[in-house]
């Protein structure tokens, strides 16, 4: 959550209400469980850690005043590190999805490059799982576990195909309108 909030702030300084709106847009029904309080708590923690700073206060015509947060230099460093780090084979779908959204919004990374890097990571893990599976009897306990791991990695790889299609249709460098 902290990393995602930071990455969304990398695009432009923003207030908690707006951050929540963007998160909900990216998360769909999963975002409905996200309440405004969680976003404000996260922002307060990030401020204490010196990663964001309150830039100004907006006073809308109606409604309460809103604190507008911006990244500090340390915050920018952390976002860049988060974008660059591999997600690891265990990473869940939502985190990677938010990373793509944040990468595209902030312009800090090319979503397609992230997809490519993740695909390599997953296929290498799958290679290990498959080689181990071939060395074990399918009906053994080890073989059963390896089957489960391989199926999960395969599902992740198939989802990446969908990520690639969607983000390449949006990206400026993308070859949208493929012939496939």
């Amino acid at each position: 959550m902290q990393d995602v909030a930071l990455a969304l702030l990398a695009k432009e300084p923003s207030h908690g209400y707006d951050l929540r709106r963007r998160l909900v847009a990216a998360l769909g029904p999963l975002g409905e469980t996200l309440n405004a309080g969680q976003v404000y708590v996260t922002l307060t923690r990030l401020e204490k850690a010196g990663l964001v700073v309150q830039e100004r206060e907006d006073a809308p015509v109606r409604g309460p005043r809103r604190k507008v947060y911006a990244l500090t230099a340390a915050g920018q460093e952390r976002v860049a590190a988060w974008m660059a780090e591999g997600a690891g084979a265990r990473a869940d779908v939502t985190e990677f999805h938010l990373k793509l959204v944040a990468a595209a919004e902030s312009g800090l990374a090319d979503p397609l490059a992230l997809v490519d890097a993740r695909r390599r990571e997953l296929i290498r893990s799958l290679a290990e799982a498959q080689h181990a599976a071939l060395a074990h009897d399918t009906n053994s306990e080890a073989g059963l576990l390896l089957e489960g791991i391989a199926l999960r990695l395969q599902a992740d790889l198939r989802w990446l195909e969908a990520c690639e299609r969607t983000w390449s249709a949006r990206a400026p460098r993308g070859k949208g309108g493929g012939k496939g």
């Binding site: 290498r124 893990s125 290679a127 290990e128 498959q130 080689h131 181990a132 791991i149």
Partner: peptide, 13 residues
């Protein structure tokens, strides 16, 4: 994409 694999290990597993 062009990815080389060295499937033998178990570090990722």
């Amino acid at each position: 994409d062009d990815t080389r694999l060295d499937g033998g290990g178990t570090t990722r597993l």
